[in-house]
Simulated scan of single mutants.
Amino acid sequence: MDEHRDRFGVEPICRALQIAPSGYRRRAACERNPARRCARAQRDAALMPHVQRVWDENLQVYGVKKVWHQLRREGHNAPRCMVERLMRRQGLRGVIRGKTVRTTVSDAKAPCPLDHVQRVFKAERPNQLWVSDFTYVSTWQGWLYVAFVVDVFSRRIVGWRVSRSMTTDFVMDALEQALFERRPERDKSLIHHSDRGSQYVSIRYSERLNEAGIQPSVGSTGDSYDNALAETINGLYKAELIHRRGPWKTREAVEIATLQWVSWFNHRRLLEPLGHVPPVEFEANYYRILESQTAAV
């Protein structure tokens, strides 16, 4: 409004935005003179710096209860609900016991492809549907992130990568490995499904899928069920390898162990949905039956 008021005028802009000119003028007056704001807004503005300070001074681990108690010790008699509301507004939260790392960081500005899977993780042949996701591993050197690309037909891990950062290059490396190993046909019959993480909906990742002739798909509601199969693979990886053999010291140790686990998973691990056979054997049986049918014709 302030940027264009000299050119168009306040009232025409308000009509276009369907807001009352009096509301805009009242807000502008409050910004020029904070004393004109309502009592609640003035109390919020006075307390918010103290909430931020207490949270920062205590290693950013305090939750609402401890921030509230510390403010009371300092003489700020604000109600707990007010502290909770201000912390939520400022994006502050207490530490949660256990290891919690946010890996799915959505980009609201990035256009998302349609959901072509609708939580039905089934495929009738190899290279019909891939799912991608990544998880985290704690090491003495810091957090590591491990990305997987899985062929839904056989649950075979066709691409993976370990990285120290959650970047687009990181997940693209896993995709490139999958493309090199599988060499899918460029007819867009292959669907690549992921969650709404900013890495997977980035321009570079989308362009690489299009270049390879792969149709992108992204979960519509943004919860774990939208990418349940990839979440299952992550869970197996954590339960069967990471949690059993930790603590992990270095990235190299995680990479070597992940390489060994992926090889075992693909070639030896029995999967109940496949009839208790390994993914590689399941695919080999499919191609053997396909060849026999072709020969019979």
Score class of each variant (00 low, 15 high):
R7T: 13
A16R: 10
L17S: 12
L17Q: 11
Q18N: 05
I19E: 12
I19W: 08
P21E: 07
S22W: 00
S22F: 06
G23Y: 03
A29T: 08
E31W: 08
A41D: 12
D44R: 11
D44I: 11
M48D: 00
Q52I: 10
V61R: 12
K65E: 14
W68L: 09
R73H: 00
E74S: 12
E84C: 08
R88A: 15
G94N: 01
I96W: 04
T104N: 08
D107R: 03
H116E: 08
R119L: 09
A123Y: 06
V131T: 15
V131F: 09
W143A: 04
Y145N: 00
R155L: 00
R156G: 07
W160M: 11
R161D: 13
S165E: 06
V171E: 05
D173G: 07
Q177D: 14
R182W: 09
L190W: 04
S194W: 00
D195F: 03
Q199W: 03
S202M: 11
I203L: 14
R204Y: 06
E207Y: 08
R208Q: 11
E211H: 12
I214H: 06
G222V: 09
D226H: 13
T232M: 14
Y237E: 11
E240L: 02
L241E: 07
I242L: 05
R251P: 06
R269G: 02
L271D: 00
E272L: 10
E272D: 06
L274K: 07
G275R: 11
V280I: 13
E283G: 11
E291T: 02
Q293G: 14
